[in-house]
C-alpha cells in the first residue's frame, strides 16, 4: 500500500508522539484523537482535550505475521499486538526487540520511535511507534 504524503503527514502528531484525546466530561482517554467521546456523545463536543499517552502498556493479544503485505515483506515473520496502555486505551502495534516465541499475554511493553515503512525506493520514509519489552 502506498500512502499519499499528506495522508501520513496529517497523523504525524499521534504516530510520533502518541497524542490522543481526553474527554473533558468523563475523563476517558482515546487514541487516536476523537472529536466525540464514545461514552458521552453530545455532552463531550468541544470538551475533547489533547492528551499525550505515557508510552507504557501491556500485551492483550498478539500474532506472528507470516503472510505480509508488500510493504512489510522484508520484516516477516514479525509480531503484531494489541496493547492496553496504562491510561486504559488500546492500540495495535508491531512488537520489536523480542523473539516471537518469547511474547506473552500480559507482557509489559513500552513505545519506541521507529521506521514504519517507506513509499517505494525514492518516496518518503514513514516513522511512528512500535513497542518493545519494558525495562
Amino acid at each position: 500500500m502506498s500512502l499519499a504524503i499528506p495522508r501520513f503527514w496529517r497523523e504525524i502528531q499521534s504516530r510520533y508522539n502518541l497524542i490522543g484525546t481526553k474527554c473533558g466530561n468523563c475523563g476517558k482517554v482515546d487514541f487516536p484523537p476523537r472529536a466525540v467521546c464514545p461514552v458521552c456523545g453530545r455532552k463531550s463536543i468541544g470538551k475533547m482535550q489533547r492528551f499525550q499517552l505515557g508510552g507504557k502498556g501491556s500485551v492483550v493479544t498478539y500474532t506472528v505475521i507470516h503472510d505480509a503485505p508488500a510493504q512489510f515483506e522484508m520484516q516477516k515473520p514479525y509480531v503484531m499486538a494489541i496493547i492496553e496502555m496504562d491510561e486504559g486505551v488500546r492500540l495495535t502495534s508491531q512488537l520489536i526487540d523480542v523473539k516471537p516465541e518469547d511474547v506473552r499475554i500480559g507482557m509489559k511493553v513500552q513505545a519506541s520511535f521507529r521506521k514504519l515503512g517507506q513509499d517505494g525506493d525514492a518516496g518518503v520514509i514513514h516513522y511512528g511507534y512500535k513497542f518493545r519489552p519494558a525495562g
Binding site: 500474532t63 495495535t92 514504519l116 514513514h126 511512528g128
Partner: peptide, 19 residues
C-alpha cells in the same frame, strides 16, 4: 490505525483466536 502498522486481515482475526 491497524493496517499502516503492519496488521493484516488474517492477523487481526489471529489476535481474536489467540485471546
Amino acid at each position: 490505525w491497524e493496517s499502516v502498522f503492519g496488521a493484516t486481515f488474517a492477523g487481526l482475526y489471529a489476535m481474536m483466536a489467540r485471546r
